[in-house]
Structure formats: C-alpha cells, structure tokens
Amino acid sequence: MSVTPVEVTGTKAARRNVVERRRRPRERGRIPLSIVLGLLMVYFLVPFWWLIVNSSKTAAGLFGGDSALWFADDINYWGNLVDLFTYGGGIYARWLGNSALYAILGGVGATVLAVLAGYGFAKYQFAGRRLSFAILLGAVMVPTTALAIPTFVLFAQAGLTNTIWAVIIPTLLNPFGVYLMNVYARDAVPDELLDAARVDGAGEFRSFFTVALPLLRPAIVTVLLLSVVASWNNYFLPLVMLSDNRLFPVTVGIGLWQSTASTYGAAGGQTLWSIIILGSLVSVIPLIIAFLGLQKYWRGGLAIGSLK
C-alpha cells in the first residue's frame, strides 16, 4: 500500500474531502447488510422475547398447547408477580437484595483495589515492580473456578463459609482490572502533571486524589461495571460457599428452583415454572438498565485492553 499525497497533507479540507469520498462506497450494500443485521438481532433477542411472553402466562397457559412465542389470551403478569414475591415467604426479594449486596460490596471493593494497584504499577518505580507485574499477568490466566475448592476448605477452617464474606472476599480479586487500570493510567496521567503537583507541595495521596483520579474516570467506570456484572452473574462461587438459602444470590436461587421444578417433573412443578420464568426476567432488568444507562462510559472503556 503506497501513501498518496491526499493523506500526507493533513489539512482539514483534505480530511473532510476524504470523509466525503469514503462515505460513498459505504452506501453500496447497505440494504443487504442491514437485513443480515436485522436477522442477527432477531437471533440475539429471541430468548428475551420468549421470557417476556411466557412470564405473562398462567401455569395453564404455559403448559397448554398455545404458541410458545406469542401471548396467551389471559395476561397474568400481576398474578405471577405476586406469586413470585410471596413464594417461600418472599425469599425472592431477599435473593435480589443479596445479589445487590454482593455485587456492590464485591464490585466496588475490587474496583478500589484495582485502581490503587493499577496506578501504583503505572506511576512508581518500586522494588519488585517488574516481577510482581509479571506475576499479575500470569494470574489473569488462572481460572477462577480452580480456586473455589481450596478457598472453600480454607474458609471452612476459618468458619467463614455460609456467610456473606465467603462470597464477597474472593470477589475482591480482579487481576484483569489491575491490568486495565495500569494500561490506562500509564497514558492518561502524565508524569509531568504529577511532578508539577509535587513541586506545588501536594503529597502523593493528594496528587492521586486530585490529579490522577479525575483523569482515570473512564477506566474506573469500566472496571466497576465489569466487576459488578461479574459478581452479580457469579454462580459457581456462591453455589460452593453457601448452604443457607437465605444467603443465596438470585442466580443460585433460581438455579435451585429450577432444579426442584425439574425433579417434580412438568406436572408437579407447574406453579414453580411460571415464577422461575418471571424471576429470570426480573433478575435481568437491573443489569439491562445499568448497561443502557451507562452506555457512554463502557462503550469506549471495554476496549481498553485490546487497542494496545
């Protein structure tokens, strides 16, 4: 590929010219590609549609011969919602609360640790930095589930299993978050700016809070979102650590209901199925709202690690 004079003249006019011209070939093939995109979207949305439709059905509607992808005559959202939040003494609301607690404490904690460590790795030439960073990169590749069994045995000896800490403490570990923060902090926080703050008499922590933190905001939101989602969605860890169903997060709780309903077979577990379906729908709403609301932050942030 040769470089033509059009690109080397970096004037605004030339650039606009380029933009104009590159738009035209793009128009071609737009309709077939949009159709492909539309079909893909249908595929990605079908399960949501199924969930929305079927959580409106009564047990009879669910098991009757009606279409699985369209509403029954009887729309029973309210009835199912009442069933969902009263079943088993209102345990579902408790599960939702637990999920929120684990996601917030675990996610925020993991983010705080990752921001501090990522900044430390990026901005201080301390003894052992290279070695510890190499170990950290290795740790990104350690499968987290491999840690669950030994962590469980260790926590059992400390009397921590079946408490909220058994879920929260292991969630604080997020080596990938540290890696992302480090990559971001290296470029986003210029050394000159920190030096200037030091010359002005600001201490290390003060320059961190007043100079570095605001510059790190996009990466912080991304790491926070990723950690919160990871702990909201976590299944293996709480499944292993918790036996008291009042401590379950919603993922483990719905898994339990599902397993119970399957054991009883389609007939015995009929009412349970409608609340499992609605329960699944309700449990995904908070995250969908979070993602839609924080769109402008994560859209750029998710790519931090991949552009290098």
Partner: peptide, 14 residues
C-alpha cells in the same frame, strides 16, 4: 451486546 449483561445461569435457562 445485551446477552452479555445476562447471568450465564439465566442465559442457559432461557
């Protein structure tokens, strides 16, 4: 992108 926000448990169940 939406399925990413869904817990794998719920995704598998759906």
């Amino acid at each position: 992108f939406m399925p990413y926000a869904i817990p794998t448990v719920i995704g598998a169940l759906m």
